[in-house]
């Protein structure tokens, strides 16, 4: 199922903050995402740059999906009703139920 992938696609060109499993938080403009939820961010800023100067000269980056812990999303661009409906439908599809999909 590609629900979450689709959600990220609709958020292209929005600003998100990605928190990695090494506790690094990177804010940037979402440029693209793929089926593995690998993420490309533009115009990035690392939070607490004094403690994390490692990426000072990095302007855009590719983050491997598997190292992501959280992504903070812009709430105003997320249609929660649509998500819930799609999630219900998606699950029915997977279980092969006859109910509408």
């Amino acid at each position: 199922m590609q629900l979450i992938f689709s959600v990220f696609k609709t958020l292209t060109d929005q600003t998100v903050t990605v928190e990695l499993k090494n506790d690094l938080s990177i804010t940037g403009v979402l440029k693209s995402v793929d089926q593995f939820l690998n993420i490309r961010l533009d115009n990035i800023k690392v939070s607490d740059e004094n403690r994390h100067p490692h990426m000072m000269a990095v302007k855009n980056c590719f983050i491997r999906g598997s190292v992501v812990r959280y992504v903070q999303l812009p709430a105003e661009h997320v249609d929660t009703q649509l998500l819930e409906d799609a999630t219900r439908r998606g699950v029915f599809c997977i279980r092969g139920s006859p109910s509408g999909c």
Partner: peptide
Amino acid sequence: GILHAYDGHMNLILS
């Protein structure tokens, strides 16, 4: 949090 979406990997979207 309030659950809005999930998938088979237990990826979640919460508000």
